[in-house]
């Protein structure tokens, strides 16, 4: 197991380097002179040249990239063009908010998704199953930003049960977390259902029944645990779309998280900020995937042999 983790850690190094390369290239793809952009609008020729010199923008691209990677690993993401403050400071302020939102959302995704999937699979093709699956289909079809607005209209404007926007207390978390979580829940529900149906058809479930076990033992002890194995991977992937989704949901609910920071930075053409935000979010995703891999491995020891 230890060896496995070590191996996976080594394997993600090229991925991380690749991600930093892509993020680095964003700057190169921008039409125009990067030094002029970094110096900000209306900067004098002298200031621009000064920037070019300071940031090493006159050196070869490969060298610039190496410097960039070096800086990133020392926690230097550059400075914001807007307020000249280090990008890292802003990220450290925003990331916890987004992580909290992501945590509650993934909780909803997993709990709601599993419950719905199991309910469906236990009685396939029943009215209950069909209705759950119809709801799940709606869940993957509704745009999160629209669902967020609808929930906001219903619960904040009409019923006035919950605050409209912001991030001040637990009540603020509910709507954004639900908005962000249901899409994933729908996908997890569909996956759980098909995985459960697959497992229920296996020989060892027949064995469990042949022993005289009660049906709920058969389902929860023998079927569910096996059915969950492929679901783990799906949840991991879902975390990625969920992280991306924070961009939209934070905008809808005016939450000052990392996602909203990135969008605002794109609007104000604050490129170092965009780079930092995208890079950090991607690194989080890469490490979550690693975690999921390890978890998958831990539950499914049989891979050892193959």
């Amino acid at each position: 197991m230890f060896l496995f983790i070590a191996k996976r850690l080594v394997q993600i190094i090229p991925v991380i380097l690749g991600v930093t390369l892509v993020v680095f290239l964003i700057m190169q793809m921008v039409p125009g002179d990067p030094a002029a952009i970094l110096a900000g609008e209306g900067a004098s020729q002298d200031t621009i040249e000064q920037y070019r010199e300071d940031l090493g923008l006159n050196r070869p691209i490969a060298e610039q990239y190496l410097t960039y990677v070096g800086n990133v690993f020392q926690g230097d993401f550059g400075n914001s063009l807007k307020n000249k403050q280090p990008v890292l400071d802003e990220i450290l302020l925003r990331l916890p908010i987004t992580m909290e939102l992501a945590f509650y959302s993934i909780l909803i995704t997993v709990v709601l998704g599993l419950a719905a999937g199991i309910i469906s699979a236990v009685k396939p093709y029943s009215i209950r199953d069909v209705s759950v699956m119809v709801v799940a289909l709606l869940g993957i079809s509704l745009p999160s930003f629209w669902l967020g607005l609808l929930l906001m209209y219903l619960f904040s404007v009409k019923l006035q049960w919950l605050p409209v926007a912001g991030w001040d207390g637990p009540a603020n978390i509910i709507l954004p977390a639900v908005t962000l979580g249901v899409g994933g829940a729908a996908i997890v529900a569909r996956m759980t259902r098909s995985s459960m149906l697959d497992v229920i058809g296996q020989d060892y479930i027949r064995t469990a029944r042949a022993k005289g076990l009660k049906e709920h033992f058969v389902i929860y002890k023998h079927a569910l645990r096996n059915a969950l194995i492929p679901v783990i991977t799906v949840v991991g992937l879902q975390f990625g779309s969920l992280l991306g989704g924070t961009v939209l949901v934070e905008s809808v609910f005016a939450i000052n998280g990392l996602g909203r920071m990135i969008v605002d930075a794109i609007r104000t053409r604050d490129l170092p900020m965009v780079q930092g935000g995208v890079l950090v979010a991607s690194l989080v995703f890469v490490f979550v995937n690693l975690l999921v891999d390890v978890l998958y491995r831990a539950v499914n020891k049989r891979i050892d042999l193959n």
Binding site: R206, T207, A208, A210, N226, R302
Partner: peptide
């Protein structure tokens, strides 16, 4: 009444 199945490889629960 108990039973031994034809398929020993798949008739046991793989994770218990």
């Amino acid at each position: 009444l108990s039973m031994i199945f034809q398929e020993p490889m798949t008739s046991l629960n793989p994770i218990i």
